[in-house]
């Protein structure tokens, strides 16, 4: 009897913890959305009114007019999609080569690629900038995109996932007359969709998000990405919280959309990776 009560109490506690966790994780976003439809004065009203009496949709156009946000959004999309495409192509190719072929120094190649996890842009910032400058890519889309187009984590993710595809599928395709690239295209890609989804989501998020690199390499207004635009607007008008929040909501939408689109694939992709060695 006592044991049962204890168990029930424990269960209730865990449920409480679970729900409490959700609140902690999501509350800031609710507050953001809520604040974005209030007036500049209402945002600090106490007690907090989660839904204001009068919804201030006007914050959105007002905020957007404080910078060339159309351009910034466009640039962010270009960078995010291009980097995502680069990652999907190059990381998957490399992951396939490392997972399913035997060649000399394969392990060395894999280790070299993994070691670049220790060389994030933040560390090689100065010399990467100099390389991009040598290539004449400062203030171009190419310069924004190229250094980010391959990511070691993506290679790792794809290699792990492709390793789980049975060798016999590849061999069957080889006997069926498929070329090596054909095997990649027709057999491997369709069978690692979850991992591709996870990679796409992470690449999109990280590069929709990209701040530091555009901050360094895009100095002209027409190449600024959304995070730069938002930071810049915040720097000028840091008290306009309602409008900053409106922009933040807009900035959240594409990534949220991508997440909802890919979330099943994402969780499965990470799961399938299984981190087996």
């Amino acid at each position: 009897m006592r044991r049962k009560t204890m168990l029930r109490l424990g269960g209730a506690l865990i449920s409480l913890l679970t729900v409490g966790g959700v609140v902690v994780m999501l509350l800031p976003y609710f507050w953001m959305v809520s604040s974005s439809i209030k007036t500049g004065i209402e945002v600090f009203d106490l007690p907090i009114k989660w839904i204001p009496d009068e919804i201030q949709w006007v914050n959105y156009p007002n905020a957007l007019s404080k910078g060339a946000f159309g351009v910034y959004f466009y640039n962010s999309f270009v960078v995010a999609f291009a980097v995502m495409a680069g990652n999907l192509v190059f990381c998957t190719l490399a992951g396939y080569g490392l997972a399913k072929f035997r060649f000399r120094h394969r392990e060395l190649c894999f280790r070299l690629i993994l070691s670049t996890l220790m060389l994030p842009l933040e560390i090689v910032l100065v010399p990467t900038f100099l390389v991009v400058r040598e290539l004449g890519l400062v203030n171009t889309y190419g310069g924004l995109i190229a250094p980010l187009a391959v990511d070691a984590f993506g290679v790792f993710l794809m290699r792990q996932s492709i390793r789980d595809i049975p060798d016999s599928l590849i061999e069957a395709a080889r006997m069926d007359g498929c070329s090596e690239f054909g095997i990649f295209w027709r057999i491997i890609l369709p069978n690692c969709k979850p991992a591709l989804g996870a990679l796409a989501l992470l690449a999109f998020r990280d590069n929709w998000d990209q701040f530091l690199w555009p901050f360094i390499v895009a100095t002209t207004d027409d190449l600024k990405t959304f995070p730069l635009g938002l930071a810049q607007m915040e720097g000028i008008d840091s008290a306009a919280y309602h409008e900053i929040m409106a922009l933040a909501v807009l900035g959240m939408i594409p990534a949220a959309f991508i997440f909802l689109f890919f979330q099943r694939a994402f969780v499965r992709g990470i799961t399938l990776t299984g981190l087996k060695e």
């Binding site: 998020r205 995070p227 900053i244």
Partner: peptide
């Protein structure tokens, strides 16, 4: 889904929201 949703959030959005928080 509720727990994993924040994975998709941009750093800049996070920064702005928390500055306000």
């Amino acid at each position: 889904l509720a727990y994993f949703f924040p994975i998709a959030m941009s750093q800049i959005v996070v920064a702005m929201v928390w500055k306000f928080m």
